[in-house]
Amino acid sequence: MIRRINDIVAKHIQGNLITYFFVILFFMTGISSGAFMSKALTDFQNKELIVYLKNFFSIVDSKAINNLAILKQSLLNNFQTGIIIWILGVTVIGIPLILLIIGLRGFIIGFTVGFFVKQMGFKGVIFSLVSILPQNILIVPCTVFIGVLGISFSLMLIKNKTRKNTRYSIVNQFFLYSTIIAMIHIIIVVGCLIEAYISPFFIKYISTYM
């Protein structure tokens, strides 16, 4: 069973190498842009974010973390992204918007990590590893995968638009497309659980040293 899944995934990647290249390129460009933007902040913006960061550490250190609230927010954010990409995938104009969303996700990560490292140096690296990396080990690949599926489905619609008698095939492909994305969201849920219940534990522990 696992071998069969591996074969399916390998064939999918091989058949969509160019799409994966562009999606990952946009994601990495977003990370680079976010990291650069964190260094381009004005002194006022830096001071505002530093104050916010200090308040965050003091709150984390003194109060119990509301894991359920974090889980709800994480599920909302990631499900919104997945659903928007799914919707854009069934349009013929969704490809650039999907790439933009992927780039924006990269930008947020790059800006956050860049700011932590800029303000806290090596401590910022450690904090990024415990607060951002654990959940994104699952969430980022899933988001990239969903982005590739959305673009692939959109390209399929464009190709079939000039063909006749493809309605039945498109309906089948749509159900397959939707089912796979729904299954990927199960993995995203695991990432959200990590963000809500595991990362906060490390953040609370490490905040005492910040």
Rank of each mutant, 00 (worst) to 15 (best):
L104R: 02
K11V: 02
D61K: 13
I158N: 06
A10R: 00
M156V: 02
T162F: 06
N77C: 09
F174N: 02
T166K: 10
F44T: 15
M1R: 06
K164C: 03
F107S: 09
F26K: 04
Q14C: 05
N46S: 12
A182V: 14
Q14Y: 05
L41F: 05
I181E: 00
I101Q: 03
Q135R: 11
L17Q: 12
T208F: 04
S131I: 05
L133T: 08
L25M: 15
I146W: 00
K54N: 14
A40I: 07
S33V: 12
M1H: 03
C142L: 02
L71Q: 14
V60M: 02
G34A: 09
F153W: 00
G150N: 00
N78P: 08
N160F: 02
I24Q: 12
I24W: 05
I109W: 07
G15C: 06
A182I: 12
L149C: 01
M37A: 08
L155V: 07
L99D: 04
D43R: 08
K118L: 12
L129E: 07
S128M: 10
G121A: 09
F115D: 13
Q73Y: 13
K164R: 10
L88G: 10
N78F: 08
S199L: 11
N6F: 00
S32C: 13
Q45A: 14
L17Y: 07
S33M: 15
H12E: 00
S169N: 11
G30R: 05
F175H: 01
L41K: 06
S38Q: 05
F153H: 00
I206T: 13
K72P: 05
I18C: 03
V125D: 12
L25Y: 12
K123C: 07
S62K: 13
V113Q: 09
L149V: 00
F44C: 05
G30S: 06
N77F: 11
S131D: 12
A10I: 00
Y197N: 11
